[in-house]
Each structure stands twice: as structure tokens, then as C-alpha cells.
Design a protein around this nucleic acid. Structure first.
Lengths: 173, 173
DNA sequence: ACAAACTCCTTCGAATTCGAACTACCTTCG
DNA sequence: CGAAGGTAGTTCGAATTCGAAGGAGTTTGT
């Protein structure tokens, strides 16, 4: 008999892949607790506030937010709904484009952001920034930026995918 | 009047933070399409199969899987349910510990894994591996590993977090 | 030996996510 | 102009996620 299905092992240079996913998940998990505790915000909600807070004078469109967060548009609609209900952001119809909606930070949202940010910065520092010395941090930033550019430039022309919900394993051969 | 709520900007060294989250999300997104299309697997499902396939002779406990995927236990239960229903994995009660459950790759699961892996490797290569030359890839792996160690070692002693569901912004001051 | 404390996993309900379909608006191009 | 094709957001249903609570088995301390 032959070996019991030789493990289709991944090439050794794929260590980066797992390391990346793991670290990202760990950092997010570390940060979530603090955001929930001090601002009752989900991570996505926090990010929306943070982006809107970057420059209050230039509001962000839904699409812009979704792209920056790498989030679906419908998912973003949901979260902006939540934030708007809570009075933390405001939806303003775009002037130039009748279809567009701009999201701006409401005063209450700015207040929450101010309240949460110091602790957030603290946690990120503990978890991520303090893991590395200055040179390594700079290097990591550079490498990640390089990957991001590569991926972004590659993301044109993709075929549609089958929807979720069928039995796992049922893909084409 | 004072400036309109001075932006509580993040310290400059936090670029890593955003870069990390963004790259990770982009890579995952890139990979998901292929997994869905060729194996009808979610990313988590694929990871479960892949881990179980690493070494078929030593089965993985639910907890071990959850930890490696940085996933909640209940979430893992759900996904293993799906995979088991589809006949891709098998749950085997642990012999040593009556509470434990071991997950092993079923033949059908191994087949799916073999079918999906080549394409998966291809996508990861395009998206991530090919972004960097050999030296940079090695360096990135090293840096991520360093962060992972740091985070893992730090993740003892954390206070419980309030549950989700309250109005965003309602945290303590 | 027994109880307290802990660990493993599942169940449960609620929140979040996504893709597909849809409405409305904008932009081309004939 | 008017239709075709594209873009911005939302709605909708289904899938996935999580944390809290619970059932069992295990370990520890006395």
C-alpha cells in the first residue's frame, strides 16, 4: 500500500503567511477588550471613528471607509447605522454626487474617541510596538507597506465567487 | 475659540499597526475567493483541515485548534460541526481525557485539501510571497515571530470584558 | 475521600458579516 | 436627447462569530 495520503505540505517559505495571520489576530484580540471596556466600541466602530477623526474637515464616503477597512459595503452600512443611532457620527448627503453619503464625526463621537484613544494607544504599544526596537519596527513597517502596495495593485480583474452556504467540500474539481 | 477638538492623533510609530491590520485583511480576502471557488471552504474551515493534515497521526484537540486559529471555542465547535456534517473531519473522544475531543481528517477531507492546496499556494504566493525578495521575506517572518512571542507571553492575566450589545460609546469614563 | 477550583467542549441568544439583488444617480456614446 | 453601463448605498436572508452559561470530567488541597 502507498503512504496514507502524503501530506500536501505547504512550501517552507509560507511561514510568513501563518505568522502574519496569527500576529494580526492576536493584536486585534488584544485591542478589542480595551475598546469594549472603555468605549463600548467594536474594533470596526473604533476604526470608523478614528478615520473620521483624522481630519474632521474632509468627510469620508462610505466607499472610502469600506476600502480602507477592507470591509464589505453592507457591513459598513450596518456599523455606520449603529454609530449614527448612538449619535457618534452623522451621515451627510454628498453635494457633488447625489448618490454619495459622507460620514462625519459628531461631537459625541469625538468625545468617545478622545476617551478611548489613550488606552488604545497604550495597549497597542504594549502588544505591538514594544515587541520591537526602533529599527525593527521601521523595518516591519516598510515590509508590510511593500506587501500592501503589491496586493492593492494586483486587485483588479477577479472572477466572481460562488456564494456561501453549500456543503463544505463541494467545490469544482 | 479653541481648535475644533484637536485630533487625538496616534503617535507616528503606530504606522506598523495599521499596516499590519491592512495587509492581513488584504491577504485573507485574496485567499478567500480561491478557497470558496475550488473547495467551497471558508477560510477557517480550510485552516482546520490544513492543521489536521499537517500530521494525520497526531490528532488535534478542539482547544489546540482554537488557540492556533485565534478563534473562540464556540466558533470552532460550529465550524467543526459543519466539517463533520460534510464528512471532511471526524470527532474522536479523547482516550486520556474523557472531556476532550480530537479532530482528525477524514479521507474526504484529505481529498478536498489536496484539491484546494495547489491553488491556495498559488494565491498566497502571488499575493504575499512574491511581494518580497528572499531576504525581505525571511526578515518579515523573523519580525512577526518576535511580535507573536511577545504577545503570547503577555496574554496571561486579563480581566473579563463586558459583553457586546450595549449602545456604542457607553463605556466607562 | 471529598469539595473547591479548574478545564474541555457544547448550547444558546444576540451581534455582526457577507453577497446578491435593488434603487437611484451619474457618465458615455450613439 | 435617450438608452446602456457604471457607481454609491441600502436592504435582505443566510452564515458565522462571540461570550455567557451549563454539563462533565479532572486536579488539587486538606
Amino acid at each position: 500500500m502507498s503512504e496514507p495520503t502524503v501530506p500536501p505540505a505547504l512550501p517552507p517559505e509560507f511561514g510568513v503567511y501563518f505568522a502574519l495571520l496569527e500576529v494580526s489576530a492576536l493584536v486585534q484580540r488584544g485591542v478589542q477588550g480595551q475598546l469594549r471596556e472603555h468605549g463600548n466600541l467594536s474594533f470596526v466602530q473604533f476604526q470608523i471613528l478614528a478615520i473620521c477623526g483624522e481630519d474632521r474637515s474632509s468627510p469620508r464616503s462610505m466607499t472610502e471607509l469600506a476600502d480602507r477597512l477592507v470591509h464589505s459595503r453592507s457591513g459598513l452600512t450596518y456599523q455606520v447605522d449603529q454609530l449614527e443611532k448612538a449619535g457618534l457620527v452623522t451621515r451627510v448627503p454628498s453635494v457633488h454626487d447625489e448618490r454619495g453619503v459622507n460620514v462625519t464625526l459628531a461631537p459625541a463621537g469625538a468625545a468617545v474617541l478622545e476617551r478611548v484613544l489613550p488606552g488604545h494607544v497604550e495597549v497597542v504599544r504594549e502588544v505591538l510596538v514594544d515587541s520591537l526596537d526602533d529599527a525593527d519596527r521601521v523595518e516591519l513597517t516598510r515590509l508590510l507597506g511593500q506587501v500592501a502596495d503589491h496586493v492593492r495593485s494586483r486587485s483588479r480583474s477577479r472572477s466572481p465567487r460562488p456564494s456561501r452556504g453549500a456543503t463544505p467540500g463541494d467545490g469544482q474539481a
